[in-house]
Write a protein that binds this DNA or RNA. Structure first.
Length: 408
RNA sequence: GGGUAGGUACCGAAGCGGUUAAACGGGGCAGACUGUAAAUCUGCUGGGCUCCGCCCUACGGAGGUUCGAAUCCUUCCCUGCCCA
């Protein structure tokens, strides 16, 4: 029924940073094989931000590995904890989320997560189910199990504390709430990024205090964003969303610095280690050109999240529009609802949402970033006839075919 | 409860009665360059007006002093730190 311990551990170890404690996990797996009972693998999802990206996918893939081994993935939508917002890595208190908003984000989260996860062996839970029912007394009992000093061990808490940045009490409670999830769903293993290590360990502690066998924890690396410096995150705008359209997805992969290529092969693609080794050698001895390698990486990532047809198209688009600065084939149409057919270029750019304001439109025009039918426009007040559709280009990759709306 | 330091644009941070749409840095955008949407360099970076000038909005909130305030006064809100 279940693969052997070694087989399982090989897959589980792939890409993992830490497994704490590893021997306990081995024991759990042995027991699972013996009793033919799948392990319950927990992953908590923070529904504060609705867009999942390749960074989130790293740990989702690990969860998928467990599913493939026959274990149960317990995905927790933190609709309740979303009201607190995990302060991990943040130097600022998060904006609280309403339960409704959290639930809505949770739905879209699930939709995106199942791009990576399979629907079999998947249990989805919302933590408002148990956290929302706790009374103040329950909360006091829970918080009595941990000390302020223990909580302040957490790096970002202590940093904030020592540099005088406010920490609200509810933020301190977050790790305990997350730990309570582990108690509620009786997890055997909890997954998370390395930045989650503290929270995951608290879960162990709290489970033990509730007389349960503590969960093992497994941490995955934090994937760097396209800038190659910061972790991939929406707030740094260096992310590649799972639902990113093929052209953007490919382009964003192309924009990663060369040093990140191998890391993306490993953690965005989960390629075989032998293959990664081969690429590494090739890059080192010059038999593989980094650009071609990145093209391949981009195509494969697009193929993974879309399909290989889209991947080829995205590559062609990139070659054409970015490399050769040509006009793409498929440009969206926009029909201006205006009684006049001759309008100032700056007005056209604003009404078609190519620019957010006239000032901005003016700026870009004056800086030489605007072309109409491949002719550079340098006067923001120049009038353009749009009785027939014209192709507007703003910056490197914003295109729109604009025409006057026809009334019949 | 007492004391003290603060709250400035997307973020960090200067300014402390007029020359301030607000230095500087980051970010963002545009241009050049490039295998690249990387790196680097250059420029721009509140909004409106046919616009080389004018008009709005803006320095935690609300009032006030003044010809004139982000800068002074009053009051309220928020935050750090120290002492209880």
């Amino acid at each position: 029924m279940f693969p052997s311990v070694n087989e399982q551990m090989d897959l589980i170890r792939y890409g993992a940073v830490e497994i704490i404690p590893e021997d306990e996990l081995v024991k759990k797996i042995e027991k699972c094989i013996k009793t033919n009972t799948p392990l319950r693998i927990k992953l908590g999802a923070d529904p504060t931000r609705p867009d999942l990206h390749l960074g989130h996918a790293v740990v989702l893939h690990k969860l998928r590995h467990f599913q493939d081994l026959g274990h149960v993935a317990v995905l927790i939508i933190g609709d309740f904890t979303g009201m607190i917002g995990d302060p991990t890595g943040r130097s600022k208190t998060r904006e609280p989320l309403t339960l409704e908003k959290a639930a809505e984000n949770g739905r879209s989260y699930l939709e995106q997560a199942t791009i990576v996860l399979k629907k079999e062996n998947l249990e989805v839970r919302h933590n408002s189910e148990w956290l929302g029912r706790m009374t103040f007394r329950d909360v006091i009992e829970l918080s009595a199990k941990y000390t302020v000093a223990q909580l302040l061990e957490r790096d970002d808490f202590s940093k904030r504390y020592h540099s005088g940045i406010p920490i609200s009490v509810h933020e301190l409670l977050y790790p305990l709430a997350q730990a309570q999830d582990s108690v509620a769903i009786k997890s055997d293993v909890e997954l998370g990024g390395t930045d989650q290590k503290f929270n995951l360990l608290v879960g162990r502690e709290i489970q033990r205090m509730n007389g349960m066998e503590p969960q093992c924890i497994l941490t995955m690396p934090i994937l760097e964003g396209t800038d190659g410096v910061e972790k991939m995150s929406k707030s740094y705008d260096n992310y590649i969303a799972l639902t990113e359209d093929p052209n953007n997805m490919f382009g964003k992969v192309m924009s990663i610095p060369d040093e990140l290529i191998l890391r993306y092969y490993q953690y965005a693609l989960f390629s075989d280690l032998e293959e990664i080794q081969k690429i590494k050698l090739g890059l080192e001895n010059g038999t593989i050109h980094p650009r071609n390698c990145k093209v391949e990486l981009g195509k494969r990532i697009v193929a993974k999240y879309h399909n290989s047809d889209e991947a080829d198209k995205a590559f062609e688009y990139f070659e054409k529009v970015i490399k050769n600065k040509e006009i793409p084939d498929d440009i969206q149409d926009y029909f201006l609802d205006s009684p006049i057919t001759e309008l100032m270029i700056q007005d056209i750019l604003v009404s078609s949402n190519l620019c957010p304001s006239k000032k901005e439109a003016k700026r870009i025009i004056e800086q030489g970033g605007v072309y109409v039918d491949s002719v550079k426009i340098d006067d923001p007040f120049q009038k353009i006839h749009i009785s027939e559709p014209k192709i507007f280009k703003v910056g490197k990759r914003k295109f729109l075919r604009i025409a006057h709306k026809k009334y019949n």
